[in-house]
Amino acid sequence: MKRFGCTNLTALALGLAFLYLPIAVLVVNSFNDSRLVTVWAGASLRWYRELANDAAMLDAASVSFRVAFLSATAATILGTLAALALTRGGRFRGRLLFSGMIYAPLVMPEVITGLSLLLLFVAVEIDRGFWTIVIAHTTLTLCFVAVVVQSRLVTFDRSLEEAALDLGCPPLRTFLAVTLPLIWPAVASGWMLAFALSLDDLVIASFVSGPGATTLPLRIYSEVRLGVKPEINAVCTILIAVVALGLIAASLLTKRSASKAPLGARM
């Protein structure tokens, strides 16, 4: 390995500063006792206390977490099946359309996905609310799960599955006993990605949500449009903390399973 170099170090430091400085300012401000962002009036948990009394915000948070949990779980099941279909399904009729539908939402602007789902719900006369958001988020995130799981399935030793099938193990049992234990880190990170995307989504939710189902991003958005509020800093800090803890837990889990993997492969 060659000397790392001064230019490289500068580029990296500037890049990371660019990424983290705005977030750091936000986190620090959430502990500022003053209502004005410009004046530092000492550290306090004042805004967190006010947040704890903000029923509308807490309600929105509960809606968001329930939507994220349900849609991530449904998306993980559907996305894993889709990945299996693409890698193990062979050539079936309409495969091109299928893979096209998996890849399109990854890059398609969210306004189009949101608009089209809303028009569907209007056409079949489903009342908009909690469940329409769950359906919309499941549709979007299952594509991300499928791509994550698919990339694991293509690099995976098929002879293990074939051995089980040759020995007369039925496909469903082969999947549960051989394939799933080997791909589960990908499935788990797919679930986490789906959860994070659902928690994050504003555009699609704003199209398909209805009265009584306000998600956290929708709530934050309507507040932010009116200007900076210290309570919003506090909400954002909590969300950042939740995500950071989740990621640390996930990286510890994958490390554990990575050290176990050679054992699994030997079986």
Binding site: I23, L26, Y221, V224, V228, I232, C236, I240
Partner: peptide
Amino acid sequence: TSFLIRVYA
């Protein structure tokens, strides 16, 4: 982290 948070920052 939510991109709404990043824009808000």
